[in-house]
Computed example of a mutant assay.
Amino acid sequence: MTAKQDIVFELEEHPFAQYVRILGKGKNGSRPLTREEAYASMKMIMAGEVEPVQLGAFMMLMRVKEETREELAGFIEATRDSFQLPTGMAEVDLDWSSYAGKRRHLPWFLLSTLLLADNGIRVFMHGAGGHTSGRIYTQDVLRFLGIEYATSFEQAAEQIKQTNFSYLPLEFLCPKLHEIIELRPLMGLRSPVHTLARMINPFDAPNVMQGIFHPGYKSVHQEAAMLLGQKNMAVIKGEGGEIERNPDIVCEVKGLHEGELFEETWPALFKQRHVKETELQPERLAQLWQGEIEDEYAVGTVTATTALALKLMGKAHSVDEAQAMAESLWSNRDKTKYGVN
């Protein structure tokens, strides 16, 4: 080797680089990940084997193209496989995600889940909070109902055994996904984690409720759930993106019944729309439950959302029967519960 010859060091490619390249190779060279590739890439992310710059690039490339049902199924499988679940885990009837937060109306759907729990349905709720300004989130509102959220799978399982309800924040359920969701203020955009977190169903409940904001995501949720072998699920464009049926408008539902795809339309409960709340006061949730205030829109929301779950679970066989059953459950609720002394 002469003094004039250059010494070239060839750096070894990072193992995760292949997945960034698949997504970002250009208009003609890029393609979606296969289900197997999605699984492998998310497995590396869950294990902390990805550099921050790779993670940011990967998530934003996925955001631009939007995730396919195969990619979503692979991501969910890898996420589930990363969990360390307790032995003797509690059985759950209904998985309910809460990741959007509310800004126009209070989260009346919380009363729907408690109404179901009070009538023997074991509900596991998971979600995240604080990632979008101007919204109120479930884990911050629960205290107004006198409910403590769980901080571990074990505590969640015990709460379900005791009360048929538990809420476990994503930061305790899956710290890595929570870390990625918290990047939203930095990136300025949501990532695929907002979609897959809604679908992780960690307790493997046979019934799953999901709410989305963008209607186009309903089919992706529905078809990914089918790939994953989910038995019963329903996804709606919920109020604010949460699993909450707006009783003022028609609700289009997509989902699975015994593993088969279905679509159905639920009519509005009211002929005229209600004026939105001027100020969100979480204490009104307990006041409505205890019968201290009257609010036609709120009660309509609670019963309409409850009805969706009842029909999904086979407790009712028609839209009208489900709505009548939900209204009966609401009328006969124990009004002494869910308040702060």
Rank of each mutant, 00 (worst) to 15 (best):
A268Y: 07
M233Q: 13
C251L: 15
Q290K: 11
F213M: 08
L196D: 00
A38V: 01
Y297A: 04
G216Y: 02
P86A: 10
E71N: 06
N207K: 09
L106R: 00
I7R: 07
E13D: 08
E154D: 12
I76Q: 09
A156E: 03
P215Q: 01
T68S: 15
L173W: 00
E277N: 05
T2G: 14
T278A: 15
P206M: 01
D204Q: 15
W289D: 09
E70M: 10
K176N: 14
L115A: 02
A57R: 13
V92A: 05
T305M: 06
G48E: 01
T305C: 09
M199Q: 12
A156M: 06
V123N: 01
Q162T: 04
N332T: 15
G130Q: 07
V64M: 12
Q54S: 12
S219W: 09
E71T: 08
I243S: 08
I243N: 12
G211H: 07
Q139Y: 05
K65Y: 08
C251Q: 03
I121R: 05
T151R: 13
N332A: 15
K4N: 06
L329N: 08
E263M: 12
S318W: 02
M60N: 09
C251R: 03
E51K: 12
G314S: 03
P107Y: 03
M1C: 11
E51Q: 10
E263T: 15
A322C: 12
F165D: 03
Q281R: 15
Q272L: 13
A78V: 11
K218Q: 14
E327L: 14
K218N: 04
A128H: 09
E277T: 13
R63M: 11
M313Y: 04
K43I: 06
E154W: 05
T278P: 09
A73T: 11
F203D: 04
H221G: 07
E13C: 01
R273Y: 06
S112W: 04
E36N: 05
G211Y: 02
M199N: 10
Q155T: 07
K25M: 13
H178K: 15
R284N: 14
E71R: 13
T305H: 03
S166E: 10
L308Q: 11
E252L: 11
E263W: 00
V340F: 10
T163I: 04
E37H: 02
Q323H: 14
A197V: 10
K161E: 02
G101S: 04
E179H: 12
Q281N: 14
R273M: 14
R273H: 01
E51C: 05
Q84D: 09
V250H: 10
P32Y: 07
F165Y: 13
Y167L: 11
S328W: 10
I160M: 06
V193C: 07
G74I: 05
I22F: 03
G26H: 02
K271Q: 13
V319K: 09
K337T: 06
V253C: 04
F16Q: 02
E71K: 02
L23I: 07
Q54N: 10
G24W: 00
M62P: 00
K65L: 15
V8E: 08
I121T: 07
V53I: 12
E258M: 02
D320Q: 12
